[in-house]
Computed example of a mutant assay.
Amino acid sequence: MEDFKRLNPIEAAQQFIFKHFPNCQGALLAGSVIRGEATKTSDLDIVVFDKTLSSPYRESLIDFGWAIEVFVHNLTSYKHFFESDYERARPSMPRMVLEGIILKDDRIIESIKKEAKEILEQGPKKWSDETIKTKRYFITDALDDLIGCTNRAEEIFIANTLAELVSEFYLRTNLQWIGASKWIVRSLKQYDQKFADHFVDAFDVLYKTGDKNKVVLLVNKVLEPYGGQLFDGFSLGKNQAEL
């Protein structure tokens, strides 16, 4: 799968659709290759709409010199994925659809893109005060574990958990979409480049040197507008247990 064997990504995606889904009603090429963020290990993310399918599926394969991830839907199943992504605040499917380059269209793509655009512009559901309180508690718990940890191996993985919790809290309390893996940083940058830089620097210093101070300051700054750290008096499920 060397570069010289690869077709242009759009040409490869078009040939893939012609070969595997010639009768589909629509297809899109999304992902890093169309955002100009591709690396030598990037694959092609292709979304297919085929009204003959009884249920959606996802498949990974290699064709035309590319690793290809294909997400295949009928003309209603994608709505379930839109809804699911909205509920978890990670808009993978709406983002792929909206950013996607059209490979084939039997006059269905415009309306689906419109649905995706409306979801993305709406933003995720606002957290309740109770959810914020619960998240504060678990961030505090992870931070305490980090501060008290003297085992370097354990410290690394506590920091991983804390980074994910804090990024989620910062974005969701500001009514922003979240992400996982590389999309943690991308989501932070899309919303607040300055905060993203501080976030990355704090954890980078911790991973490289073991110095926890920047992470502690960052976490406290994120929690401060919502009451700061929370341990004493936190309760989960007690009222239901007393009924």
Rank of each mutant, 00 (worst) to 15 (best):
Q190P: 02
V72G: 11
K208T: 00
K126M: 07
C149A: 12
T150S: 07
V33K: 00
T131V: 07
V200H: 02
G228W: 04
S32V: 06
T161I: 03
N8F: 05
L171V: 05
G100Q: 00
E118P: 02
P91M: 05
H80S: 11
S235V: 06
Q193P: 04
S32W: 03
F49N: 11
R172T: 05
Y57W: 11
D141I: 06
T140D: 03
N8Q: 13
V166A: 09
Q15D: 15
F82E: 05
E69Y: 02
N8I: 04
V72C: 07
I46Q: 05
N151C: 04
R107Q: 08
H80F: 06
Y191D: 08
P225T: 08
E87K: 14
I147H: 01
F195T: 04
I112N: 08
A196I: 09
Y226A: 11
R172W: 07
F234D: 05
G227H: 11
I178V: 15
R6F: 08
D145M: 10
A38M: 03
A30D: 00
N8D: 15
L120H: 04
M96E: 00
Y86A: 08
Q15E: 15
K114Q: 13
T140R: 02
D3S: 14
A12K: 10
V70L: 03
I10M: 07
D43C: 03
T161M: 10
K113E: 02
I109A: 02
Q240I: 14
D43I: 01
A67V: 02
M1Q: 08
F64E: 15
V72L: 01
A38I: 02
E110K: 01
E164A: 14
I34L: 06
A38E: 14
K126T: 11
E121M: 08
S167V: 09
A163Y: 06
E83L: 13
K79F: 12
W183R: 13
E224M: 10
E121Q: 14
D141N: 12
L162R: 04
K40I: 10
A202R: 01
A89T: 03
W66H: 15
V216Q: 06
D145T: 00
I119K: 12
D192M: 13
I184M: 13
L171Y: 10
M1I: 07
F49Y: 13
I34N: 03
A202H: 06
A142V: 00
N160W: 10
R152A: 11
L230R: 14
K79A: 13
C24Q: 02
D201Y: 10
A38S: 12
G233D: 13
F4N: 09
G227T: 06
L243N: 15
P22Y: 13
Q193I: 15
V97T: 04
Y57C: 00
M93P: 00
V185A: 12
S60V: 02
F4Q: 07
Y207D: 02
A30F: 00
I156Y: 05
E164G: 09
R95W: 06
P124K: 03
Q193C: 10
H80W: 11
K135G: 01
D63W: 05
A241P: 04
F4A: 12
S55H: 11
D106I: 04
F21D: 00
I156M: 11
I62E: 13
T173R: 11
A163R: 09
E242H: 13
F203A: 05
A38C: 02
S54V: 07
K238H: 12
L175K: 08
